[in-house]
Nucleic acid binder design. Sequence first.
DNA 1: GTATGATATTCCAAAGTGGAAGGTCGTCCG
DNA 2: CGGACGACCTTCCACTTTGGAATATCATAC
Lengths: 188, 188
Amino acid sequence: MTPRPPNATAASLLGFLHDGPMTGWDLVQTAEARIGGFWSLSPSQVYRELAAMAQTGLIAAEERGPRERRPYRITEEGRAAFAGWVERVPEAETIRFPLLLTIGFGRHLAPGRLAAIVRRHRAVHAERLAGYEAQRAAWDAAGGAPTPYAAATLGFGISYERAALEWFDGLPAEIVGDGGRRTGDGAS
Amino acid sequence: MTPRPPNATAASLLGFLHDGPMTGWDLVQTAEARIGGFWSLSPSQVYRELAAMAQTGLIAAEERGPRERRPYRITEEGRAAFAGWVERVPEAETIRFPLLLTIGFGRHLAPGRLAAIVRRHRAVHAERLAGYEAQRAAWDAAGGAPTPYAAATLGFGISYERAALEWFDGLPAEIVGDGGRRTGDGAS
DNA sequence: GTATGATATTCCAAAGTGGAAGGTCGTCCG
DNA sequence: CGGACGACCTTCCACTTTGGAATATCATAC
């Protein structure tokens, strides 16, 4: 019952609940859409944090709706906890990039194999960038992003993916293979 | 005793052990220097993985040297396990960037507070970039990087940090504050 | 010799992760 | 009408990871 300070996942849920009561499933969807790009979380984590916060009074369950849907609303204690969290200097980001491990140990791989792996990863980044840019274009068409804050987080995603693609395209022949320079893939 | 497939941390240790026997501490240092930038790990993880791999025969402990130092060497089973790991298509990277959460919830913060937080984070990235570029300069001065693989992983760090800095510098006044545009910080 | 600090390793409680299982509801077809 | 199916929504749990505290060893200075 002693409300330990919320972790970043829990605090984010509190943040979303400022806009009104939501069920666990609503929050799963919202979180995926709004912060999924730079904060990984799974449904079970969402439900666990909700249960814990309901225990400690940061949120309160309203009566159940249809299909076990149980809306939660944020309490005053929850608002206070969120305010305390958002005020703090956030920690540095953590990146875990397995592909860089594979490249770092590249001398243990057949050149063609490494090139194939790199190509697959490049495609993933190209796709993500396309998704982000589509989002930005949609906002532009609608007269601007909902908030400058949303625009900033999306902007990070775009900067990051562009940098990644440039890095991919600058890799040397030892890694992408001599055949990797062919003109396909893009044009045509 | 059934050697479950090594995770990325364990596999990296096996990779380093290809260059000869090393103690746990050596590996802590090596890992921090070689993969610390894109693969977070702590000393206790290194020792735990070493103990587990010694159990399952992927590495073997040699007799102790001075000061409890216990060198491990890779076994044939270990080489096989590493070869199997490095051959796989690595997973997508995971990024957890708490600062973006704070910015995303920026409307709940006083503008000056958010600006101060952002400025602090920018400084961290500037410092990291400087470190990476110093490394690259040192390699250039010495006639090139040790391997194209090391050059590629360092190159990613440089691309990433440069992109981050450009993103910081493109943030709007709502986030960095109107006073954030002052010319200080850099020149002078 | 002993205090101090850097080196080196172990241990463990707590948190996080992901997947399996279970329950509820709409809908489609016989 | 009813029952099978699949999508939706939630809970549970075993396993892994994390990071910090505790411990031990050695070098150096005083």
